[in-house]
Write a protein that binds this DNA or RNA. Structure first.
Length: 127
RNA sequence: GGAGCAGGCGGGAUGAUCGCGGGCCCCUUACCGGGCCGGAGGAAAGUCCGAGCUCCACAGGGCAGGAUGGUCGCUAACGGCGACCGGGGGUGAAGGUAAGAGCUCACCAGUUCCCCGGGUGACCGGGGAAGCUCGGCAAACCCCAUCCGGAGCAAGACCACAUAGGGGAGCGUUCGAGGGCUGCCCGCCCGAGCUCCCGGGUAGGUUGCUAGAGACGGCGGGCAACCGCCGUCCCAGAGUAAUGAUCAUCGCCCCCCGGAGGGUGACCGAGGGGGGGAACAAAACUCGGCUUACAGCCUGCUCCGACA
RNA sequence: GGUCCCAUCGUCUAGCGGUUAGGACGCUGGCCUCUCACGCCGGAAACCAGGGUUCGAUUCCCUGUGGGACCA
C-alpha cells in the first residue's frame, strides 16, 4: 500500500485534493470519453489523457446501474477519491484520469480498492 | 425468559493524524496560506396528498373532468390527526324459525312512516302502525353534498457567450390573425406582425438559497389532536454534487476456546483469551402529513412459560 | 430535483368486471415432397409481485419492484 497517511511527508506537497484537481464539466468528460486511452479491469475502467494544465486531475463516474442506492455510490466515489489523494504524486504530471465504475465494489475496504488500482495502473505509476 | 401491540431512541463514545464542502476574520493585486465556528435523517426515501413561494395580465361563469365521502373538533391546509358514533340513496339472481312441499296464522329479524325522551351532531333508547319484501359494496356505474385555474425552484430574475436569423407553413392590422386564461362554450385580456413545425448554436456565472406554520425548556387550557403565554438559542446549503480514511482505548451484541462454580441429572454457566459485526438508508426551495424500508436498545400494557 | 408513462406466451401485441385470455413471428409433432422451403392440420407456452374491494378481478384501488420518456 501507499506510504501510510501521516507517517512521512509527501514527496511533492501534501495529500490534499482541491477543486482545481477535479474534472467537473460535462464537456471535459465528453472529451475524455472521446479521446482518452482506456484500461479495463473487473470493477473499473480507467481512461487516461494528457492535458495542458500541468495538473493531475481526477474525474469519477459511478452510474446508477453500478450501485442502486446513493449511499453505495457515494461510498465508491469516496474510496476512489481517497486513493487518488494518497497516490497522485506517483502518477505522471499533467494528466487527466477518469475512473468509471463497472461493478459494485462498495463492500470493499480502502486497502482492497488500492490494491485493485495498483494492478490496473501497473507500469504507469512510480514506486 | 419468549411472543404480540403501542411509543421513544437509533451508523456507539473519546482522542490522534490526513482529508472534504460552507460561513466569518487575517494576509494578499490575485492565487496561495493561516485562524475560528458550525456540517445528513427518522425515514433525508417513494413522490401518494396538502400548503408556503414563483411565473402565467386579472384568475370570472357554465358544462365536462378530478378528488373526498358518518359526526363534532384540531390545523395555514389536507385524502392527515384526535374524540365520538356505528355509517347517504339507487342500479343485476335469495327473509328466517315447525317437520317432504304449498297455503294461512303467529313470532323474530329487516324496511318505511309516526309519536315521546336524550345528545351540538352522527345517532341512541322506548312505544305504535303499515306491509310483505326490500341484502352487501363511498375502491364498478348513476344520483347527492363539499372542494379544486394551470404549471412548477430545471419555477422565476439578472449577466455573459454564441448563431444572425437557414428551410417550410398559416393568417392578418380598426370587418381584428395569433396567443393566454388545463378540455369545450360564454366572457375577458394582450395585440401588429405574430405563431407553429423542421434545422442549427449555447447548455457558463450570479441570484432564488435558507430564521422557519423554527427548535428547546417552563407554566396554563383541553379526554385528546392541539392551542396560548414567557424565556433561551441560531442549527447543512452542494452543483460530476461536501461527513471519509487510518490507528488507539473503552462500551454493546454474536461465535469459538476455556472452564471457577451450581444441579441427582440432561444441562446452566463467572473472571480470562481469540475472531467477527453494528440495520434501513444520505439533504438539493422549504414546511405539515401519509406510505414504504429497518439491526439493536429503552419504556408501558397484555398473554404464555418458569420446565424437558 | 421535478413531471409523466409502461409492464400479458421466447418476441411484438389484442383484451375496459364473468372469455377455454385472442392473433402474428418463433418453437414443436404430423401431413405433403425423393429432400428442403412454401403450404395444410395439431400442440406447448403468458396476465411483474404482495395486499384489498367484489359473489367474481388481467381489468378497479393501495403498496412495492423493474423499465422508459420529458424539462433550462
Amino acid at each position: 500500500m501507499s506510504p501510510a497517511a501521516g507517517k512521512s511527508p509527501a514527496p511533492e506537497g501534501r495529500y490534499t485534493l482541491g477543486k482545481h484537481e477535479r474534472i467537473r464539466r460535462r464537456s471535459e468528460f465528453s472529451a475524455l470519453f472521446k479521446s482518452g486511452k482506456r484500461i479495463y479491469s473487473e470493477y473499473l475502467t480507467v481512461i487516461l489523457c494528457k492535458n495542458t494544465s500541468g495538473v493531475r486531475r481526477l474525474g469519477l463516474v459511478v452510474g446508477k446501474r453500478v450501485g442502486k442506492t446513493a449511499v453505495r455510490r457515494n461510498r465508491m466515489k469516496r474510496l476512489l477519491r481517497e486513493f487518488f489523494r494518497l497516490n497522485k504524486h506517483r502518477l505522471p504530471a499533467s494528466q487527466d484520469i477518469l475512473i468509471v465504475a463497472r461493478k459494485d465494489f462498495s463492500f470493499m475496504k480502502c486497502q482492497d480498492l488500492c490494491r485493485e488500482l495498483e494492478k490496473v495502473l501497473a507500469g504507469r505509476m512510480k514506486a
